[in-house]
Design a protein around this nucleic acid. Sequence first.
DNA 1: TTCCAGGCGTATC
DNA 2: GATACGCATGGA
Length: 271
Amino acid sequence: MDYRNIGGDIHLKQADFDLDETLDCGQAFRWERVADGYHGFLLNKSLTITRHSDSIVLHDTTEADFLNIWADYFDLQTDYGELKRQFSQDETLSKACKFAGGIRLLRQDSWEALCSFIISQNNNIPRIKGIIARMCALFDGFPTAEQLSSATLEEISPLRAGFRNKYLLDAAGKVATGEVDLEQLKTAGMSDARTNLMKISGVGPKVAECALLYGMYRVEAFPVDVWIKRVLAEFYPNGFPAEFAENAGVAQQYLFHYVRNLATEKPPKKV
DNA sequence: TTCCAGGCGTATC
DNA sequence: GATACGCATGGA
């Protein structure tokens, strides 16, 4: 990693890393735009990250936190240039990678990602962000599974998450008791991990896949939402290429961002 | 007013 | 196992 610690700020030179494309592409919901960059959180650890000419600056960060937390979170050890070269053998993926070549897959916290994507179902991104922000306000930070599991439906009604409130409490209970062991699922077989996650009421195939991809960095996970359904129907009628299976989740993130932004020019087709 | 949003649980066949 | 429907909320 090419970085310098200058007066408490980490100045990083990093290829294939665009802040807008990475932090505002629908994979994480707690980053807000500030001047030249973003302010956001990993659980209750906060960071301001900005772009200055040819480097990215992580503000007021110790070198230890950078190396132990943020370098991992921003997946700095993965060569996205190489991934994009592989993906670009495919015509559609090639366009998606060119459209937003600075996307990196964030290695988020497993519990935070699980909650986030439970909230995401049949919802839109601005509302998902609002619900999560209200949850953090209500609990004075992102609640642990234990904290959330001891709350009642009535107590979390200010989230205005609708029918998802009961799903959050069920997830919190099962994680708090260890019935769903997120640490163990990080190394479990994909099939077992999916089955275990879907014991949670409100976690189906799509949310389980998102929890695995974004919260446990299982990059073979391939969440299929309404947008990816459209991509598959239009560009991959015979299925997603098996040659990319190993990193299908990363490919999926390029495609998701690409088609969502194309849709602002052309209304999406109902599938 | 109606439709839709990073889906899922339930009922029904 | 497949398909149809309701679901909370709020912006377009």
